[in-house]
Design a protein around this nucleic acid. Structure first.
Lengths: 182, 182
DNA sequence: TCAGACATGTAAGTCGTTACATGATTCA
DNA sequence: TGAATCATGTAACGACTTACATGTCTGA
């Protein structure tokens, strides 16, 4: 893929659990090339702009698999809403309620969005096809039919993580609002 | 509170949604003093070490309330496990299974821990008291009886957020493992 | 007496974001 | 023709972590 493709993949497909920006992507790709973990080549189709696509090397594949097997660090995730909620404990309860209600509204909006995407994906998994929107961003990884359906499923399953998490947060909002009402 | 107290409060009480380190705390406290948002004074009890405690000023309180009412930004939370899971889609399924099982084990261990803390807190809320462990870290914020019980409840509710989130992640693990079994 | 907790801080380095700079191509 | 998108990159800044430096007090 190219740096631009990676950015798009992350923004469109992985935005519920990852982000990247060009300031990280392009320099990192160069570092990968320096370490011979990836190779770079110009791939400019006729009538197209200049593009550089990167491919993983044999050495890169080994490193990638090594990384996959390394213990996954779960950094402490900072949740500003939780911090505000905790610190609002000496203020009038109405402040805490307002905070939670805003959080609730945000999560509801996100949940709706994700559920729509999930519905699209579920339909395409059942019909065995892959929606065009995904072709644009997933085409690069592989093209065998069995693998394509597998990718679609993994895509769907990562979305499910986001959906279940947001439902949990909404359940928390309900619990808190009930608890604060007295 | 002192810088050391703040660090302890965050480590002991807020670790499921926040972290801070001395490299941030001490310089930031100085900045707050520079801006007259907090005041610093030495408070060395007899036979105790040198300590500097910081108090919020009137100006600081205004700024704090302003911050509470500012829209809460929800930064995209990077979840390395999700990233690995997504990227494992072209490898044998056993790789994905292993990843999810490790995640599952981690979340289960954390959940158990949090549920224990929550049980302690629930008991002390019901009995109207506050456990001694919390006195150490919460004593500074206020001491009126009604407020103490309120603090305890807020503490408990932030823990509930962690518990519900982890249960959601475990539900996701179950869903994925079932889905991968075929 | 010695480990561990108390207590305050600094320096170096890494990571990540934002803004900027550049220029081609497509499509209305 | 002009806005949007494609496409690649750099520079500056800010956030965050890690390691270090220093010294006191408590309790086994």
């Amino acid at each position: 893929m190219s740096g631009y493709d990676i950015k798009k993949l992350v923004d469109v497909g992985l935005s519920h659990f990852w982000n990247e920006n060009y300031g990280q992507i392009y320099p990192t790709l160069e570092l990968l090339v320096d370490d011979r973990l990836a190779s770079k080549r110009e791939k400019t189709s006729v009538g197209k702009r200049k593009r550089f696509v990167y491919s993983i090397t044999r050495k890169g594949e080994r490193a990638f698999k090594g990384w996959l097997r390394e213990p996954t660090v779960m950094p402490i995730v900072r949740n500003e809403l939780q911090l505000k909620f905790f610190l609002s404990c000496n203020l009038p309860t109405s402040e805490s309620v307002r905070l939670v209600q805003e959080y609730q509204a945000d999560q509801r909006a996100m949940l709706e969005q994700y559920q729509e995407s999930a519905a699209v994906l579920r339909r395409s998994i059942e019909s065995g096809s892959r929606p065009e929107e995904l072709d644009d961003i997933l085409q690069v990884t592989s093209s065998a039919s069995a693998e394509r359906s597998e990718q679609c499923k993994v895509f769907y399953l990562t979305l499910r993580h986001g959906i279940l998490s947001m439902k949990a947060r909404l359940a928390w909002c309900d619990e808190v609002l009930r608890s604060l009402e007295e």
